[in-house]
Amino acid sequence: MSAQTTWIIWGLQAELTVEDDSALPAAKALVDSVLAKVELASSRFRPDSELMQLAHSGAQNTHVSPTLAALIDGALQAAKNSDGDIDPLLGADLVELGYDRDIDLLPQTTIKDVNITQRVLRPILWPQIELHGTQLTLPAGTFLDLGATAKAMAADWCAAEVAEELDTAVLVSLGGDIATAGTAQQPWQILVQDTDDALSQQISLHSGFSLATSSTQKRRWSHRGLQMHHILDPRFGLPAHPVHASITVAAPTCLEANTYSTAGIVRGTAALDWLESLELAARLVDLEGRVHATSRWPREATSHPKVSAHG
């Protein structure tokens, strides 16, 4: 019999489901431990995090923890796989846009306009990041932000550790980034839906696959009279022009799924053809609520939902 627990972390809803209900307390402890390590390594909102220490001191062949090194390596993989649509050096841009503390503490407004017309190209410096094992060199004056990838990697790590340590099939969801591990007796049942008023779809997610949803409708705040969202176009360091309300992608790892869902938001009108060319299963919802999908995305849902995939 499966068991589930939910809680709030990093301003997001987290969900943990294990197929062996007796494993739930130990699984939650393992997940908490992984998430604590990720936060201490990479949080932009903790002055004692490694990432914030690097923001103050820079990094020139600087030794970092294995956790932070792995998170940076994953971010660089995402940057390469997205042709730069994901950039781990957007920290200063996010601060400039007012995203300098936890999202729940930022000013909110009902204004929906994020269409910033004045856009100036910014330098693309992430290819200059050097990471050799745990030795890191950053371009001078740059500020890491791993928000686009660290959450997905954390979900992957949590699921893998629970399955390995406790020998149970497991699903971990961190704010719409879903990772699975172990061999479940039945496919996991997922309700794919971004906001409460958006069209939903129920799908089956087989063990060993992950799912990520990126949204322009959540994690918003007000800055200088404009409504911002957290997915930036690295060419300009500004919120990506909103073509899609959300994009959901399935892939073998949550890092891969999140890479392509986030990059799809940045690519806008080119996203569907790009995701199709990569032979990915993807569901795209435009700003009018219309659903588009690649040929590999399931057309029908089955059974009853157990976990919600919210961006």
Score class of each variant (00 low, 15 high):
A181S: 11
R235Q: 09
H223G: 01
I231N: 09
G225A: 00
L199H: 14
I203E: 01
T195S: 14
I203V: 15
A198N: 11
L211W: 00
S204P: 08
H230N: 06
G176V: 07
G182H: 02
W221P: 00
H230I: 03
Q185G: 15
Q189L: 12
F209N: 13
A212D: 06
A240N: 02
S207P: 08
K218F: 07
I231E: 02
I178G: 03
D177L: 11
S210K: 10
P239I: 05
F236Q: 04
G176K: 12
L174Y: 05
D233C: 11
V192Y: 02
S215T: 14
W188A: 06
G175S: 04
I203Q: 03
G225S: 01
H206A: 13
M228W: 07
F209A: 09
I231L: 12
D197T: 13
I203T: 07
S222L: 14
A198E: 08
D196H: 15
L205C: 08
T183H: 15
A184N: 10
G208P: 01
I231V: 14
S204V: 05
L232W: 02
I178D: 01
P187G: 11
S215V: 08
L226P: 00
Q189I: 12
G208W: 00
L205G: 04
R235P: 00
G225H: 01
D196K: 15
Q217A: 15
I231T: 12
L226S: 13
V192H: 06
P234L: 03
S207H: 07
G175V: 06
P234H: 09
D177M: 12
T213P: 01
T213A: 05
G176T: 09
G225Y: 00
S222D: 08
D194T: 06
V192C: 12
Q185D: 11
G182C: 10
L211T: 05
A181Q: 06
G176C: 06
S200F: 00
D177H: 13
Q185L: 13
R219Y: 02
S215P: 04
L211G: 05
Q186S: 14
G237T: 07
R220Y: 04
Q201E: 09
Q189P: 10
A240W: 04
S222Q: 11
M228V: 04
A179P: 08
A179D: 06
W221G: 01
L226G: 02
G176Q: 10
R235W: 03
T183Y: 12
Q227S: 15
T180H: 07
Q201R: 12
A184L: 10
V243W: 10
A212G: 11
K218C: 08
D233M: 10
Q186G: 08
T195V: 13
D177V: 11
S210H: 09
Q217D: 10
H230D: 01
P242S: 05
W221L: 02
V243E: 10
P239L: 04
